[in-house]
Simulated assay, not measured.
Amino acid sequence: MLRPCLPPVVLLLAAIAAAPAPAQTAPRDGAVTAPLPVAPAPVRAQPLASGAVTHQVRLPGEPGQATVIVRSIQPDSVAGNYRIDFDALDVDGDGFISREEAQANPALADEFTALDSARRGKLAREQLAGWLLD
């Protein structure tokens, strides 16, 4: 039986596709790795060249690997409904918005974990300084 003559590049790509994926190893610092979630549509992207860099960390790689730089960028503009009435959301009147109370505002509920940097499960008025408060 005659086999078609395939270019070496095609054979190499076929071999790579058929090879098992390399096993992932746990990070040495105990961090948990997971694939990035698929972004919900619609997502408004901002070019990385715009906005002010607020923080930067250089992560050293293993020998022979590239160094990774992670930057936080303050966006030029914000899309979405970020206007909240703190007192109306603070149903129990304790001076904080709990995760349960935040569910009344979908934008705040989506951003709750990012805003709760102390991981207390509640947000103080000061933590919402970037939001327009009624």
Score class of each variant (00 low, 15 high):
residue 90 D to L: 06
residue 81 N to T: 07
residue 29 D to F: 01
residue 60 P to V: 06
residue 95 G to E: 07
residue 79 A to W: 08
residue 74 Q to A: 09
residue 119 R to D: 15
residue 32 V to F: 00
residue 29 D to L: 01
residue 61 G to C: 03
residue 129 A to F: 05
residue 132 L to N: 10
residue 6 L to F: 10
residue 112 F to V: 12
residue 1 M to Y: 14
residue 29 D to E: 03
residue 129 A to C: 02
residue 125 R to F: 01
residue 45 A to S: 10
residue 35 P to I: 06
residue 104 A to S: 10
residue 6 L to Q: 11
residue 134 D to A: 10
residue 75 P to F: 03
residue 51 G to R: 01
residue 103 Q to L: 09
residue 4 P to F: 14
residue 116 D to I: 11
residue 85 D to M: 05
residue 42 P to M: 13
residue 1 M to L: 13
residue 20 P to V: 03
residue 48 L to F: 06
residue 124 A to V: 06
residue 125 R to Y: 04
residue 119 R to P: 07
residue 122 K to Q: 15
residue 35 P to A: 11
residue 83 R to N: 03
residue 42 P to C: 12
residue 100 E to M: 06
residue 10 V to S: 13
residue 95 G to V: 05
residue 23 A to K: 12
residue 96 F to H: 08
residue 103 Q to S: 13
residue 69 I to V: 15
residue 12 L to A: 13
residue 15 A to T: 12
residue 59 L to F: 07
residue 67 T to Q: 11
residue 71 R to C: 02
residue 68 V to N: 02
residue 111 E to T: 15
residue 90 D to P: 06
residue 126 E to A: 11
residue 52 A to T: 12
residue 99 R to P: 11
residue 127 Q to K: 04
residue 104 A to R: 08
residue 48 L to A: 10
residue 117 S to T: 15
residue 102 A to I: 01
residue 62 E to C: 04
residue 92 D to K: 04
